[in-house]
Simulated assay, not measured.
Amino acid sequence: MRILIWHVHGSWTTSFVQGRHEYLVPVLPDRGPDGRGRARTWDWPGSVTELSPDDLRATAADGGIDAVVLQRPHEVDLVHDWTGLRAGVDVPAVYVEHDTPREHAVTSRHPLAAQSTIPVVHVTWFNHLMWDCGDAPTRVVEHGIIDPGALWTGEDPSLAVVVNEPVRRGRIAGTDLVVRFGRELPLHVYGMGMAELGQFAPHLAPTLHEDYPQADMHRALGRHRVYLHPYRWTSLGLSLLEAMTIGMPVLALSATEAPRAVPPEAGLLSNDPAQLESRAREWLADPGAAAAAGAAAREHALAHYGVGRFLADWDEILTEVGS
Rank of each mutant, 00 (worst) to 15 (best):
P45I: 03
E103W: 14
P259M: 08
D313W: 11
A291T: 03
E316Y: 08
H224E: 06
R309K: 15
A255N: 13
V167N: 01
G288V: 04
L208T: 04
G267I: 01
Q115S: 14
E142W: 07
S235M: 12
L284E: 07
P26S: 13
T207P: 09
R223L: 13
R260W: 09
W152T: 04
V79H: 05
I317F: 11
I145W: 10
T319F: 04
Q214N: 15
Y227P: 03
V106R: 02
G174S: 07
H203K: 06
W12C: 06
L185K: 03
T117R: 01
V162L: 09
H188M: 13
R169Q: 11
D43K: 05
V140C: 11
L197M: 05
G267Q: 00
L208F: 08
P259V: 10
T256V: 15
P29Q: 10
Q115V: 06
S235A: 14
S15L: 08
D34M: 02
P33F: 03
L85E: 05
V167I: 09
G37C: 08
A289D: 09
D315Q: 08
Y190Q: 07
E196L: 14
R281Y: 06
L251M: 00
M248G: 00
R40K: 04
G32K: 03
R40P: 11
E316T: 08
L204P: 00
T14C: 07
L253E: 14
A136H: 12
I65N: 04
E142M: 11
W233M: 01
I246E: 02
R102N: 12
A301S: 13
H218G: 00
H188I: 02
V123A: 02
L112V: 13
L268R: 00
M244D: 09
L228M: 10
A301N: 01
V25Q: 00
R36S: 13
Y23F: 09
A113F: 12
R109Q: 10
Y231V: 11
V106G: 04
P92C: 10
W44F: 15
V91P: 12
E320P: 03
S239P: 15
V189M: 14
T175S: 04
V250I: 12
A60Y: 05
A312N: 11
L28D: 12
T117V: 15
T107H: 07
R2N: 08
T83H: 05
D135C: 11
A296L: 07
A255F: 12
H203Y: 06
D147N: 01
V307F: 07
R168M: 15
G35C: 11
S235F: 15
G19I: 11
T59V: 15
L159K: 05
V76L: 08
G64P: 03
G247Y: 03
Q214L: 14
H21S: 01
T117C: 14
E282Y: 01
N164Y: 06
L177D: 06
E277I: 02
T59Y: 15
G294S: 02
T124S: 12
P73G: 02
A201W: 07
A293M: 09
D147P: 08
L268P: 03
A255R: 00
N271I: 06
P230R: 00
R183W: 06
P157I: 08
A293E: 01
A301I: 08
H122D: 11
D216M: 01
P273Q: 11
A114P: 06
G64T: 05
P101T: 07
G32R: 02
A303H: 03
E75T: 09
Q71F: 03
E316L: 02
R223Q: 14
P259Q: 10
E282Q: 01
H300M: 07
R2Q: 06
W12R: 12
